[in-house]
Amino acid sequence: MNTSSICSWAQGSPEMTQYHNTEWGRPSYDDSYLFELLNLEGAQAGLSWKIILSKREGYQRAFHQFNIDRCAALTEEDLEAIREAGEVVRHPQKIKAVQTNALAAQKVQQEFGSLASYVWQFTDHQPIIYQRQEVSEIPAKDDLSVKVSKDLKKRGFKFVGPVTVYSYLQAVGVIDDHLITCPYHTNNRHE
């Protein structure tokens, strides 16, 4: 496939292109994946997504493939060992946030049945499919991300500001922000 037709942000490296072409914007209902992307988006704050993708396997190893129960059970010693190992961004609060977010996710699972049910209830379990023609049309945040961010914070999640949440909603397919010219836009995929 001609990579020049895909969203411009994904053309910077093979890893970014692969992520864009196989994951980004595809609706997910898998709790571990939803939890992983929430934490990776939070870790990305202030950094580039390319850096986070380059450390993704390290994150998956360090945080037990983002198994929510295993992350919730991490001890302070475990978190310090993860920081010292250097496979993830060494920001102590971002590392601690994975454990904090796992505890919050467990409560969400108890209340809603799954993290997926919680995430998708904000859009009546339907993806929002935008018809954007230019990258400049894509906002950093919107009313939905502000609403979801407030609710996540109220439930104890960390590193979930409205900009991070907008990126998260794009990543897990709640929002399809592929440009309409991109072959991976919902209207263009033939799977």
Rank of each mutant, 00 (worst) to 15 (best):
T3L: 14
S4H: 11
S4G: 13
S5I: 07
C7S: 12
S8W: 01
W9A: 12
A10W: 10
A10E: 08
S13L: 06
P14L: 03
Q18R: 11
Y19E: 04
T22S: 11
T22N: 14
E23R: 09
W24A: 05
W24D: 02
R26D: 03
R26W: 05
S28K: 13
D31A: 12
D31Y: 13
D31I: 10
Y33R: 07
L34G: 06
L34Q: 08
E36N: 05
E36Y: 03
L37A: 01
N39R: 08
N39W: 05
L40A: 07
E41P: 05
G42S: 09
Q44F: 12
A45R: 08
G46R: 01
S48F: 08
S48T: 15
W49P: 06
I51H: 02
I52M: 07
L53Y: 04
S54K: 09
K55T: 01
G58S: 05
G58R: 01
Y59H: 02
H64V: 00
F66Y: 09
F66N: 07
F66M: 03
N67I: 02
I68N: 06
I68R: 04
R70Q: 14
C71I: 04
C71E: 08
A72L: 04
T75E: 02
E76A: 14
E77Q: 14
E77H: 10
L79G: 06
A81H: 06
R83N: 00
E84H: 08
A85H: 11
A85W: 05
G86F: 06
G86Q: 08
E87M: 04
V88D: 05
V89Q: 04
R90W: 01
H91D: 14
P92G: 05
I95A: 05
I95K: 03
Q99F: 01
T100Y: 10
T100S: 12
N101W: 08
N101D: 13
N101G: 13
L103Q: 15
A105G: 12
A105E: 07
A105Y: 01
K107R: 15
Q109W: 00
F112R: 10
F112H: 15
G113E: 04
G113V: 00
S117M: 07
S117C: 10
Y118A: 08
Y118W: 15
V119S: 09
V119I: 15
Q121C: 12
Q121A: 11
I128N: 00
Q131F: 02
Q133F: 00
Q133A: 13
Q133R: 11
Q133D: 11
E134M: 02
V135H: 12
E137Q: 15
E137G: 10
I138K: 09
I138M: 12
I138V: 15
P139Y: 02
P139V: 02
A140K: 14
A140R: 12
K141A: 15
D142H: 02
D142P: 09
D143T: 09
L144Q: 08
K150P: 00
K150W: 10
K150S: 03
K150Y: 11
L152A: 01
L152K: 04
L152Q: 07
L152E: 10
F159K: 08
G161H: 02
G161M: 12
T164H: 07
T164D: 04
S167D: 06
L169E: 10
L169G: 03
A171G: 01
V172H: 05
V172P: 02
G173N: 09
V174D: 06
D176V: 08
H178C: 04
H178M: 07
H178F: 13
T181H: 09
Y184T: 01
Y184R: 13
Y184P: 00
H185A: 14
N188Q: 13
H190V: 15
E191R: 13
